[in-house]
Nucleic acid binder design. Structure first.
Lengths: 165, 165
DNA sequence: AGCAAATCGATAATCATTACTATTTTAGTA
DNA sequence: TACTAAAATAGTAATGATTATCGATTTGCT
């Protein structure tokens, strides 16, 4: 009786599945808009939250003040370039044992964890001329103003990317 | 010629050093205000950013939409209770080798990483009556509305907590 | 087709954080 | 000790991502 189909939700999911970068709500909005000019930004936010809550996508909260989304829900880790702001999937082994380490001396119950790596991507590392974006001068100094893709977006609530459950 | 002394900054730093929890700007504001009723919220934000940029404190961006601050700049890890929202220091060994793992198959340069653990703290684990806060139902679903201490605060830019540099 | 629930589009409201500006402090220096 | 330029402050307005609201549509059933 709950959750009916929605063409808008399908379009959002489809768009996200076609991308390997990790677009923001705003970017998703401007792109989906090209196929459906009537779609509302609020609809994009609502459905992204819905999809994240259902576990169909992941919400990435990298600390740049804008939520990013990932249709790849398989276990993997993310790297954020502090120069160009791009978010890249890392090819690395699973590190879920972190959770055991953390729980060893802890009296509560640890259900999961979040990890992000920061640095300079291949392009920005080789290109010495590339200036560091002011608000990113030290890793994780990711500015709100950064627009890795095309536009900007911002922040929500649920189902943030989270490993090890 | 830059950076002059400021009584306000001293008070903020002093307050933060006296706390083991990880207060938000708003909480710091309301507390420091008791000793200096004239201090401005903007001053608190400005100085927190200054202190973080100087490396005297750490900014914690846990994904709850509000920045938290920590006067303990020594390497350590954090746990977030998804029921009560409290942030607790974890007693666990250093895991900086994560960075090597992540960098092994990566062509850029990794300078640091961020890790947070989620779950239920000792109190909330034993207290089965305790209901999950709606927006925290899955780990890292930390709501903006949560006020671990007294008041609320929000978000900034630089010198976020970041390990492994 | 007919109806109730779910969703939408449009827009207003939130709210943490930042920006702006006139005034006050700070820290040298004469 | 007074003088001054730079830095910091208080107060307040602006920003911007996200959420809430609400009348109009769409969806899924019968």
């Amino acid at each position: 009786m709950a959750l009916k189909h929605s063409k808008q939700r399908d379009m959002i999911k489809a768009f996200l599945m076609g991308r390997k970068d990790h677009p923001t709500a705003e970017v998703i909005y401007t792109n989906v808009r090209e196929k459906n000019p009537n779609i509302s930004l609020g609809t994009v936010y609502r459905n992204l939250t819905l999809l994240a809550d259902m576990g169909e996508i992941k919400r990435l909260r990298l600390g740049d003040g804008v939520d990013h989304f990932d249709a790849d829900t398989s276990p993997h880790y993310h790297f954020v370039c502090t120069k160009c702001g791009s978010i890249i999937d890392l090819e690395m082994q699973n590190i879920d044992k972190l959770q055991e380490l953390a729980g060893a001396d802890f009296n509560g119950k640890i259900n999961g964890y979040v990890v992000y790596f920061y640095g300079t991507c291949e392009n920005c590392t080789s290109d010495s001329e590339q200036e560091e974006i002011p608000c990113m001068q030290s890793p994780h100094k990711i500015a709100q103003s950064i627009t890795p893709l095309q536009a900007t977006g911002h922040q929500a609530c649920n189902a943030v990317e989270q490993r090890g459950i």
